[in-house]
Design a protein around this nucleic acid. Sequence first.
DNA 1: ACGCTGTATGCAAGCGCTTGTCTATCTTTG
DNA 2: CAAAGATAGACAAGCGCTTGCATACAGCGT
Lengths: 346, 346
Amino acid sequence: MITMRDIAVRAGVSRSTVSFVLNDKHSAMGVNEDTRRRVLEVASELGYRRNELARAVVTGKNRVFGFVVPGFGLESEVVSRILAGVMDEAEARHYAVQVIRLARPDDEIIRRCVELRPTGLLCIQTGPETLRHLRQEVSRFGIPIAVLDSSPQLEGGSRVLSDDLAGCRQAIDHLADLGHARIAYVGGDPKTVVSRLREEGYLAAMAGRHLPVLGGYVENGYWNAEATEAATVRLLEDPEDAPSAIFCADDKTAMVVCRTARRLGRSVPGDLSVVGFADLAMAAYADPPLTTVAQPFPEMGRVAVRRLLAAAAGETPPPEDPGVPLPDELVPTHLVVRRSTAAAHR
Amino acid sequence: MITMRDIAVRAGVSRSTVSFVLNDKHSAMGVNEDTRRRVLEVASELGYRRNELARAVVTGKNRVFGFVVPGFGLESEVVSRILAGVMDEAEARHYAVQVIRLARPDDEIIRRCVELRPTGLLCIQTGPETLRHLRQEVSRFGIPIAVLDSSPQLEGGSRVLSDDLAGCRQAIDHLADLGHARIAYVGGDPKTVVSRLREEGYLAAMAGRHLPVLGGYVENGYWNAEATEAATVRLLEDPEDAPSAIFCADDKTAMVVCRTARRLGRSVPGDLSVVGFADLAMAAYADPPLTTVAQPFPEMGRVAVRRLLAAAAGETPPPEDPGVPLPDELVPTHLVVRRSTAAAHR
DNA sequence: ACGCTGTATGCAAGCGCTTGTCTATCTTTG
DNA sequence: CAAAGATAGACAAGCGCTTGCATACAGCGT
């Protein structure tokens, strides 16, 4: 193992000089250009690789972010796309990213978050209970937290989320512009924040366009195929009252709605337009390819890292500051129009 | 920041005693049960959290694996499911996982892999060129590498992959058992290893069941929707020669085949059975839900970690050992039967 | 000759931790 | 009852690195 000492000996200088050169501090502490070159040369000749660990110990800060996900969160496309964004920003600034998965028992893992002395923690889809734990654990060490995905508000932590309300408006506007007036909504599990938020967005957007929400036009699919099929059947069975378009709380729901509609003899988008939410990979492969509200997952990751960095650099917010939440950061969505929507019949 | 010294002072013992207690080494080095309890108590009272970094510096080994993915690899469901498996095994053994994304310029990032002094590196979908670089960089430090996903063989490194050949056999056997004899294959880009491998598996399995591969029954969709549609049209346009089942190189291809078949007026699985490969999340949401060969991604991750651990523990293989590759580890696939396959017509 | 300022470099402390060695005390046993 | 052994804990070195301070030696004006 080649260390700085080896370089120092071989280049005939002191270890501090080597350190200055290797850290580009030669301008502040004068290091002769000749010496500098020699050190660099010896270093590359010996194939020296800095030991980041030792460096982190002495400087007291580890250039690492913790990416905290719940048990099976990693399997979700949403999470991995956020991670991709986090990596963009972190790598550009020479930070590393460590994945930390919360499982039973949480406590031990939460402790581990701190033992690595990360610069900050990014929490994705983390429950309020765990979040509180985490926050408490971490506050003493001055490690900032950013919360992604519409988890509940964390006092004193940054929250970054997609602007779902605006997204719903984009979807409804698109349908309204196509001439649809009878637009129904199929949500997920109304116990989840996401589902409620999008329902709210749907209602607000309908009101915004002065469109009526007919009785029975708000259904829930509970994020599973069977319930979603049942909901779709309820909406479509009576051709009289059936909507001409359905706005869904997510892409998976939308895909099930499409296939159920087809099973009932309705063509998409001929008889029924369908809009999803998220723009998962599968949306493009659906039949028909799905019109959907694209959430800015990678951008959310990037924004969160930037916030963390700012928090780590600036004054640490008072750990037990009671109320005063940092304002949420809403990242805009955009509509991706594919082939599951078409103009309404006369 | 609370350190071991603080605990030592407060408990009235030496720092080494604290270290022994906190590392459960008290059995080897005698530490009195009373002392032990006192130390533990003071530690929890003070809210002590070990500094893993310092520990890693002094022991010389960082309990971290590097998970190396190419530029946009993270967005792929395959990669994130492998990562989930890696996390399973790593966390169970108290290792952390760091994601390292290879982008332009590779060299700097590759250097960074080493600067963290990881216990081992897991390379996913990494090109042969990069792999060579990485290997060379890493070998001097005795850091073992495991390669996942059918990347080319790495001399002296472990390779873990899914048993695609057997998977193809499962698919063809399933179709043959349903009475299909005219089974075609739609691959991806024949320049890729995966596509060629599955074509090979298809041919071998057909031969195994004494089924003829008719002229034009091997098509390629180049992993994109347009080419796949065209290939499907070629296969199906003449009802005389059309196959009654199509085996596809992956799920996305299969989904495009399904929707193209429907566009041509064929029903799936009524007129045409379709089988995919991978079992991505979207397979379950396809219309109809896709019968597919499920690849054991998480298990591959787990196996790879185990191999790395073995390599790190056992004798390090001679860095420049020329030939002698470690045997590949093939992890078995299994068939998931959904609704895109049905018995052949008489 | 003297003290200056400034620049280039070495010295050594110290980050938080592990661990080999050594001492002091408490058993055992011939 | 002394010697040998076991037991409990202290001491200090050292991991690879950063950095404040001291030092050495230019060149400059007086």
